[in-house]
Each structure stands twice: as C-alpha cells, then as structure tokens.
Nucleic acid binder design. Structure first.
Lengths: 160, 160
DNA sequence: TCGGTGTAGATGATGTGTCATCTACGCATC
DNA sequence: GATGCGTAGATGACACATCATCTACACCGA
C-alpha cells in the first residue's frame, strides 16, 4: 500500500466527511454496546451471534457458517462461542456428518436473552440513528454501505 | 429504553440499510486496523492519539484535553497512554500549573511513527472507501454523520 | 492404503476496552 | 485551617480481538 508517487492527501471536504464518519461510527457502536450490556447483559457481539441462530429454522449452525455470515475471524468466533457457552447462551452438539465439526445450538436461555434484549436494542437504534434521518438519507446510506462492502469484498485477500 | 407500548420493528428498507451499515463499518475498521498494524506497527487508536498530538503546536496535551477531542473513556485513554509510553511513542511531563495533572508529549519516535504511517493509511482510506464514492455521496455521508453525532451529543448522559 | 493437502475448529499469548474503584490535588466555605 | 466536593488521573479485574500455532478429520491421487 506504499505510494511510490506520493500520497494524495485528503482535501477539506474529504477530511471532514471521513473524520465525522469515523467518530460517529465509533461513538454509535459504543453507545449501542453500553445499552445492550447494561439493559440485557449482552454485548453487541453476543447479539449478532444470537440473531444468526434465531434466524435459522432449527437454531443450529456450524461454526464455519456463522463465520461466513458474520465475517468474523475464525479465532474470534471460536473464543466468543466458548465464552457464550460458558454463560449458557449456546450449546455445542456433535456433528455426525463431519467428524471435524460441531453444531452450535441456541439454548432456551439464549433465546430468552435475545427476546428480552431485542426491543430495547431496536428502540436505541431508532432513537440514536434512524429517527434522525430521512428516508432518502437512509436509502443513500444503504447505497454507500453496499458500495463500500463491495470494495471490501473485491480487495479481500484471504480473510475478512 | 424499554417500550411500554411495543417496539416498532425495522421495516425492510431500514433493516437492509442498518445491517449494511453495521457490517460495512465493522469490516472497514478491521481492515484499516490491520493495514496500520502490519505496515507500521500502530493501531488505529495509536494513530488517532498521535494525530491529535501532531496537530498541536508544541506536541503537548493534557490527558483531559485528549479525552475531550477523542471522546474516549477516561480509563481507556489512561491505559492506552500507559501502553504508548511503554513503547516510546509518547512521554509524560509534569504539569506545574496543576499538581493533579501531567502533559503528554510526542516523542521523536512517535513523530517518526506517524510520519511513516500516514501515507499508507490515507491510501487505504482512499482505496477502500473514498475512491468508491462520488462527491455527492461523500457530502451526503458527512451530513448523515454530523446529524447522528448531534443526536449522540444530545442524548449523552455523562460520558461519551 | 499410504501420504499430502486442505478444511474445521481450539488454544495460548498478548494487546485492547470497560467498569468499579482509588488517590491526590484544587477550590470554596465555614 | 478543617471540611467537603469536584476534577485529573491511575489501577486491577475482566471481557474482547488478533496472531500464531496446533490437532484432527476429509479427501484425493499414486
């Protein structure tokens, strides 16, 4: 990523946009995290794992499937699942089709936890984020996000 | 934040926009972090601290000033500065005007580190983010970010 | 059936973020 | 000048993220 020809620095508008975005993003996720943590004892990461499991018909997923849809590092996922299992939010079951793997299953406690957490979380997303934006702004944001996601996919080496 | 009257769930467009934004944001910062780390041995957090110090005339700031402009938790800042000092990126000097405080000063090593890191970082911000967007999209993003920042400020209790 | 390569997943070390708590100084008021 | 409150900052414990590495099984071709 080194520039032989000299880096093109950000102009004023780019600078302002980029810095506003970075700060907004960081503070927003910090707030969402705090709300979830204090009101439900879940982290944003826990929440996302539970959402994926809830969206699956039988509440069972292979870790590598979770990895693909969350785009997490494998090791992060593994550690996180260990912690979630220790807290009783998920369980592990043997996978008979593939001796290497396992199934991650949503426990009753896990289902209860996300059911309890969801309303407050969605309310917070609305009040801190969506409620301040027009439909057009929301549509524009989606387009920007998807374009950037496309670039991230296009330039992904191995990971991510 | 609990809803007595029932939560208004996200409609399809809101859902798509929000999820795209969250995923984009997480993956983007992960990539930026990795680029900085592998190419310069700095984290994004290190980089931001160093930027603030570099933008100051004498390269000296009180911790609480850093806290105000970074919007970090006090404890996070304190721990981070300790680690950065251990690595020689910053130093601490006594503050004669206020016996409680200290000055954080940019060391030569710190200045070298950010000077070396900046071009690659800016290139990455461009290639993963700005280059994929039109001027209009960048302007729209800035407006959205600033509006949300306003909401975050308006609803901040103590912290953040 | 043996060896090689690829894939699923776990683990230990280390850096990072948050919470609760603690110390010490500044400052006002009695 | 003692009391009390507010602010500046550090610290220990713990959850989280990343990297390097390791095990075990799958699968394929000789």
């Amino acid at each position: 990523m080194a520039t032989m020809t000299g880096t093109q620095w950000l102009d004023d508008e780019e600078q302002r946009a980029w810095r506003a975005f970075v700060r907004m993003q960081g503070r927003l996720t910090a707030r969402l995290n705090r709300q979830l943590q204090t009101d439900s004892g879940l982290s944003l990461a826990d929440y996302e794992v539970l959402v994926q499991l809830t969206d699956t018909a039988d509440g069972r997923l292979r870790p590598f499937e979770l990895q693909r849809c969350l785009h997490w590092e494998q090791s992060r996922l593994s550690h996180h699942l260990t912690r979630m299992q220790r807290r009783g939010l998920i369980g592990r079951e043997e996978c008979t089709e593939d001796g290497r793997g396992a199934f991650i299953v949503l426990t009753d406690a896990g289902r209860d936890a996300i059911t309890a957490a969801a309303p407050g979380h969605v309310d917070t997303v609305r009040s801190l984020f969506l409620d301040g934006l027009t439909r057009d702004q929301i549509a524009a944001l989606r387009q920007v996000s998807e374009q950037v996601l496309g670039r991230l996919d296009a330039t992904a080496d191995t990971d991510d």
